[in-house]
Write a protein that binds this DNA or RNA. Structure first.
Lengths: 255, 255
DNA sequence: CGGCAAGTTGAGCCAGGTCAACTCCGGTGG
DNA sequence: CCACCGGAGTTGACCTGGCTCAACTTGCCG
């Protein structure tokens, strides 16, 4: 494969096109080697990456879409333990202990399965690439820890508020636009936050009624009262309190 | 500082003494450089690592004890998002977004604050060390994801069962000994699992009554029915079901 | 031995899970 | 183009696991 062809293969991919992502850190030789030994893959909602496929291709980089790590309990309860998006690199080499979940697409996902050998070579000698991957993994780790903190003690409304901020943090900022993309369905959101779809629905409704946000579509919200949403996310009980009147609006201490 | 002195400083430390941990991968020069630019620290329960201290020393390696990452909500609710133990390396360089928690010792903790500069140098040129750190961070990430999965949808008893297995996985195996060390207090355990200390207590009691384990001390358990505990941890509802009789034991389908 | 935090036990209650019915919406085929 | 279908989302009513509060016991440290 010559370089022109490689460029064709990679130039459409955000992992190469976005200057701060992994493949953008590589020089021509490295990109060439990696591209030559890697395979792209397109998945649709429900497709999973498991077993044998991961044996030979344990490292995947997300170009587009949302991939979830799901844990399934014996009786059918399901949870989404993590969400992977554009730029995330998932290294599943030698996964062993515990019930590591399956990787399941929550919509159309484009990803690239990287050759472990070439990946490791690049890790060993390209400090810029190394730094990008290291920070990505660190983000994944801290994000998972934040998420644990969120779902451990927070109430439903608080979890949802936190999730909306998580979405805001992760999406590329479009200045002068407060519309936040919710890249997953209600049902997935419920599984990610450890609640029921019914509860998610009720919480969105409450936030709308209290005029904290508007949800024009299922996959987007616009926050109209950021400080209040922040207070809810941070676990300020006063901000969560329900209405004190019959059909008036909620009474909120602004303290 | 000469090499003999460095050896004195590091030879007691498990990060150097355990062949599979970070410092054991370094050659004499590297160890020398790292040791020379690092500072050990001993903490006692409740001590926290925050702010300025982390500004100049954002990388810490745990030698002994349990360090927790805690998130505090506005109204005082607290959660432990992650537990760090021997060999874990925590890299907090450029932490910024979200409410990253404080690092708080849950007992006597010995750790070593590593020079970011030397650490980065070593990362760049020692593949063995790089591999060890990479795998440690990956473990942290996946552990946090597993933990999210555990606390999202599991019931109290299931969470506790999972936690006991997590302890078992993390502690160095002593063959022919089923006694598992519980390295944290009940109160911390409750915060880690997102439940109340009262509930933790009740769950331990139930597991003892059902003769699934015995807890000779507060900080240790011995599992007497591993398969049952496993089933509970895996979310088998039948295994969680309470008793069907008045004062008999629980009726359990072994299916 | 006193003092305090940690842990346990009991009683009551509520946030959110569960179940059921319904609406909405995108896709498919006649 | 419309009728049909199935999964996603919503709404309401009910119920329960575990949170809360309070009282008590235990264990640790000076």
């Amino acid at each position: 494969m010559n370089r022109a062809e490689i460029k064709d293969k990679c130039k459409q991919c955000s992992i190469y096109a976005n200057g701060y992502l992994f493949c953008a850190q590589l020089d021509a030789d490295e990109l060439c080697a990696l591209s030559d030994h890697s395979r792209t893959l397109t998945m649709k909602r429900g497709d999973s990456l498991e077993g044998e496929a991961l044996g030979t291709w344990p490292i995947v980089a997300i170009d587009m879409g949302v991939l979830s790590m799901q844990h399934l309990l014996q009786d059918g309860r399901k949870t989404i333990a993590a969400l992977f998006m554009r730029g995330d690199i998932i290294d599943l080499r030698n996964i062993s202990n515990r019930n590591r979940g399956a990787l399941i697409a929550l919509g159309k996902v484009k990803l690239c399965r990287l050759s472990p050998r070439v990946f490791e070579q690049i890790m060993g000698k390209n400090p810029k690439a190394q730094k990008v991957i290291w920070e990505n993994l660190r983000d994944q780790a801290f994000r998972a820890m934040d998420h644990s903190g969120d779902i451990a003690k927070k109430q439903a409304l608080e979890k949802l508020a936190s999730f909306i901020f998580e979405c805001r943090n992760r999406q590329e900022k479009i200045p002068e636009c407060d519309t936040i993309d919710i890249p997953v369905r209600r049902i997935d959101l419920a599984e990610y936050l450890g609640m029921q779809p019914e509860t998610v629905s009720r919480c969105f409704k409450e936030l709308e009624q209290r005029e904290i946000l508007v949800a024009p579509r299922l996959n987007a919200v616009r926050i109209t009262n950021i400080p209040m949403l922040r207070r809810i996310a941070n676990g300020d009980r006063d901000a969560v309190i329900k209405d004190a009147g019959k059909h008036g609006f909620k009474v909120l201490k602004i303290a």
